[in-house]
Structures are given as structure tokens and as C-alpha cells.
Amino acid sequence: MGFPNKRLSVLLALSVAAMAMSGCTRIRTHQGYLVDNLLVDSIQPGTDNRASVEGTLGRPTFVSEFGQQDWYYVARDMKQLAFSNPKVAKQEIVRVQFDGAGNVISIDKRDASAIARISPKDGSTPTLGRQRTLLQEIFGNIGAVGAAGAGGAPGSGTAN
């Protein structure tokens, strides 16, 4: 039994394709600080200090552990298609540098080009020692258990 009209079959095929495509959703998320360029540009080196920067921009995303304790404000927009791995669509990092007295020395901005790409080693982590198969791991101790203390554990009182 076929469809009476070719137009109806094309319409049905298009509706099935539209329903299948609706499952492929794009997910967009924002992580971190919401950068307001007007506020960032209002901070002036030599004029502002830590208290005024915190009052203008808020608390930083993180503070450097070493050196003069620079403040970093990180904003990242991510995109993801259905179940794929998320990718960085846009990233902005605002770094505020302070001198020893807590006054602003400089402000600089960086984008997604500052992201470090790492590639972990595929397979397994190299270690020292024996390379044993799964079966050797499972059955490797057969006959070794209790061989040293044939009469039981030392001090258990089962020796003759």
C-alpha cells in the first residue's frame, strides 16, 4: 500500500527529517566573569589600587600564587553539539598587575589564542616493573599463597 500522492510522501519525509534534526541541539554556555569593557577601560594605572579595582570589577576569578599577586578575570563562552565535547567559542582574560604597594601597574587583555593545548600520551602511562597480562594478574598468585608459612601465619600457634 503506497501513498496516494507524491506530495504527501515528500511532506512526510521532510517532517521525519525535521524531527530527527531537532534532536541535534546546540548547547551554548558562559563560564566565569562577565566582562564589561567600559568598566575595564575605566581602571587607570597609577590612579587605581586593589580596593578601587575590586569596587569596579568585583572579586577576581583567581589571584596569581607567585610574584606581585596579579588579578585575573576570566570569561569563557563554550559551544557543544549534542553529546560532543565542548569547544571554546570565545575567551577573554583580563589581567590587572599591581606593584608592591597595591597600586595598578598595567591592565592587559588576552583572547583564546592564549589557551595551552596539551595532548596526553595515548594508551597507558609508562611505569617501571613487570608487564603482566590480565590473566597473569588474576592467576599469578596461585601456589604462592601460604607457601612461605606452610603451617600457617607466624605466631598463629598452628606450628607442630
Rank of each mutant, 00 (worst) to 15 (best):
R28G: 11
R28M: 09
T29N: 09
T29Y: 05
H30A: 05
H30T: 09
Q31S: 13
Q31D: 13
Q31P: 01
Q31A: 13
G32D: 09
G32K: 08
Y33I: 08
Y33E: 08
Y33Q: 07
Y33M: 08
Y33C: 09
L34K: 05
L34G: 05
V35A: 14
V35F: 03
V35I: 15
V35N: 06
V35E: 06
D36N: 14
N37Q: 09
N37W: 09
N37E: 14
L38C: 04
L38G: 08
L38M: 11
V40K: 11
V40A: 04
V40T: 02
D41L: 10
D41H: 02
D41I: 04
S42E: 10
S42H: 04
S42D: 12
S42Y: 05
I43L: 11
I43Q: 05
I43F: 00
Q44G: 00
Q44P: 00
P45D: 01
P45N: 01
P45T: 06
G46A: 09
T47R: 12
T47C: 00
T47H: 06
T47D: 01
D48Y: 00
D48H: 07
D48K: 02
N49C: 07
N49V: 07
N49W: 06
N49M: 06
A51R: 08
A51N: 10
A51F: 01
A51V: 13
S52M: 05
V53Y: 01
V53P: 00
V53M: 06
G55T: 05
G55N: 02
G55E: 06
G55V: 10
T56I: 04
L57D: 02
L57P: 00
L57Y: 00
L57H: 02
L57E: 05
L57N: 00
G58V: 04
R59N: 13
R59T: 12
P60Y: 01
P60A: 09
P60G: 05
T61S: 15
T61P: 04
T61G: 14
F62L: 15
F62I: 11
F62Y: 15
V63C: 06
V63H: 10
V63D: 07
V63Q: 12
S64Q: 14
S64F: 13
S64M: 14
E65H: 13
F66S: 15
F66T: 15
G67Q: 10
G67H: 05
G67A: 11
G67I: 07
G67T: 06
G67W: 02
G67L: 07
Q68K: 14
Q69E: 10
Q69N: 14
Q69A: 05
Q69F: 04
Q69D: 04
Q69K: 11
D70Y: 13
D70P: 00
W71C: 03
Y72I: 08
Y72S: 08
Y72T: 12
Y72A: 10
Y72E: 06
Y72D: 02
Y73R: 03
Y73N: 07
V74E: 12
A75W: 12
R76A: 09
R76Y: 03
R76K: 13
R76S: 09
D77N: 11
D77H: 07
D77S: 10
D77A: 08
M78A: 08
M78G: 06
M78L: 15
K79G: 03
Q80A: 04
Q80C: 01
